[in-house]
């Protein structure tokens, strides 16, 4: 299987404090790969480095087969194969249509095709009725579904989800989990999912890396991690003592 992301000794500090020191991480194509860990363990920092939004301080970073040099042309080319949804997604002022079409417009997709893909994406998330609604007035759950449709409309190879369900109620949360699974299976989209909810990791991810104070302390198939955790801190985390 192809390795889409290859990280070695990736570090990041804010001021004096090192918030990330990831010795080794590989994300393979086709998986849902979960980055699990308590708040402040460096998950978002790691994701922002992989999605090329924040430069790392040290280490080696390979994204979609390329060593990252942070040149604007490379960033654009690589980012156009990715998409991201964060925990409270930012919506541009305008309609749901305007938002879902944004990535396609940026790629200069013909108008006819934009319309078709926006409709398709919204339909997949059960949000067709909202196409003309102002995006800033959606509820938390609706916003997240539109954000997923917006990400999906550009048909990314990799979808980053940073705590996509942390700000919404449990039933919407489960609904969105179904969509995440569906996207991974039907479109063979690789998904990197951040969560601090280990039940969610267990429901969705084939592979999990556990972060702890900036370090990846355990990693492997999700099932193994839950049934046979190696690190004592993993055991504590799974018992909810963090």
């Amino acid at each position: 299987m192809t390795v889409l992301f290859k990280l070695s000794n990736i570090t990041k500090s804010y001021g004096e404090r090192q918030v990330l020191n990831a010795k080794a991480l590989e994300i393979r194509a086709g998986n849902i790969h979960c980055l699990l860990g308590p708040n402040g363990s460096g998950k978002t920092t790691l994701l922002r480095i992989m999605s090329l939004l924040t430069p790392n301080d040290g280490g080696h970073l390979e994204v979609l087969g390329e060593a990252v040099n942070w040149q604007p042309s490379q960033l654009l080319r690589l980012r156009r194969q990715m998409a991201m949804v964060t925990q409270s997604s930012f919506m541009f002022e305008g309609s749901v249509y305007y938002n879902v079409a944004y990535g396609l417009r940026a790629r200069k997709t013909p108008k006819k095709e934009i319309q078709q893909r926006v409709q398709e994406s919204l339909e997949l998330l059960g949000m067709s009725d909202f196409i003309d609604a102002p995006a800033r007035y959606l509820s938390g759950g609706e916003t997240q579904k539109v954000a997923i449709a917006r990400a999906l409309a550009v048909r990314p190879r990799v979808l980053f989800l940073d705590e996509p369900t942390s700000n919404i109620d449990p039933s919407s949360s489960l609904e969105i989990e179904q969509y995440i699974k569906h996207i991974n299976q039907e479109y063979t989209t690789t998904i990197v999912l951040i969560t601090h909810n280990f039940f969610q990791a267990r429901r969705l991810a084939q592979h999990t890396s556990l972060l702890w104070e900036g370090h990846i302390i355990e990693e492997g198939p999700t099932r193994d991690m839950f049934h046979n955790p190696q690190d004592p801190r993993t055991r504590r985390f799974l018992k909810g003592e963090y």
Partner: peptide, 23 residues
């Protein structure tokens, strides 16, 4: 977030800045 959202949707830097001005 406005800038990050724009570039993660594949906008060039210029387009992302125009989007911020629009906001």
């Amino acid at each position: 977030e406005a800038y990050d959202t724009a570039v993660m949707l594949g906008a060039t830097r210029t387009i992302a800045i125009l989007s911020i001005i629009r906001e």
